[in-house]
Design a protein around this nucleic acid. Structure first.
Lengths: 141, 141
DNA sequence: TCATCTGTAATTATTCTAGTTTCAGTTTGT
DNA sequence: ACAAACTGAAACTAGAATAATTACAGATGA
């Protein structure tokens, strides 16, 4: 599910560039996915107060605030992104061996710590930073 | 594939605790997976010089160095672990739109940066630290 | 009031990950 | 020398996670 994060960031950067209200269909075409998935992701961003929607003809999504104040951490939180995690657990809680019963807990601690580290870093980057990075990359190619 | 990391760490901690040469079958039983997967992971740790093998009767795996000098970063490197990554790419490189063509590259940059951050953190933790953490956790439960 | 959106859910398809099975090759102990 | 017990590696199967598709109710604006 980490790719929801990519859909969200891509969508928001596109909204910043377009400036105008943009439908899920147009966003999906730019992101290269389907409109239903875009709507699913954007609905969460709306709940978090990052974007607003306009329904009916010529409707769609648009940014609410200054793209300089939207950090990627806000997006993580809105989508409940886990950068580092693993559904697979080693060992067995009921095994009397300390290693077998305790390892998955310890690994989860480590993953949680790494995740926090990533989230802190994401606080430093804004949607506007990404936009500027895109411009720089285009010039240097 | 992040769970290979868990198998490796679990295996190494078990080897530290057992002290003696241990077969893939015994390791698999403690980790709760199959011997073939254990062997696949341990073979990489052997190539990295972290463990050694002994074949034939009473054979198996054993640590080479001091568990206090084996950092989790060495394990990452041996297994080529990517903590943060995404196979799914948004956009399309051939799209003339700057956002569509550039976003997946920018996201890859971000994932790479987060990954480096995680690897740096892993350098601070040793197999022995994990072992001590297990002991502490058992006492506090 | 109708066309055009979003929000949401159910279903299918695809891709990724772990498990299983098998066997060749190596080493140890007798 | 030989048999038993192990690793290393590959091919295949099973299952889980993720994305795509389809459909539709509800809201809104022209």
């Amino acid at each position: 599910m980490t790719s929801e994060f990519a859909v969200a960031v891509h969508g928001l950067v596109y909204l910043e560039q377009r400036k105008i209200t943009t439908s899920s269909e147009e966003l999906a075409s730019n992101v290269c996915t389907n409109p239903a998935r875009v709507r699913k992701v954007m609905a969460k961003l709306k709940k978090a107060g990052i974007i607003a929607t306009k329904e009916g003809l010529e409707g769609g999504y648009h940014l609410i605030g200054d793209p300089d104040t939207i950090s990627l951490k806000q997006i993580c939180d809105a989508l409940d992104v886990a950068f580092v995690s693993s559904s697979w657990k080693s060992g067995d809680e009921n095994n009397p061996c300390m290693v077998a019963s305790g390892m998955s807990g310890v690994m989860d601690e480590i993953y949680g710590e790494l995740n926090d580290l990533c989230r802190d870093r994401m606080e430093q980057i804004t949607i506007n930073d990404i936009h500027e990075k895109l411009i720089r990359n285009r010039l240097t190619i």
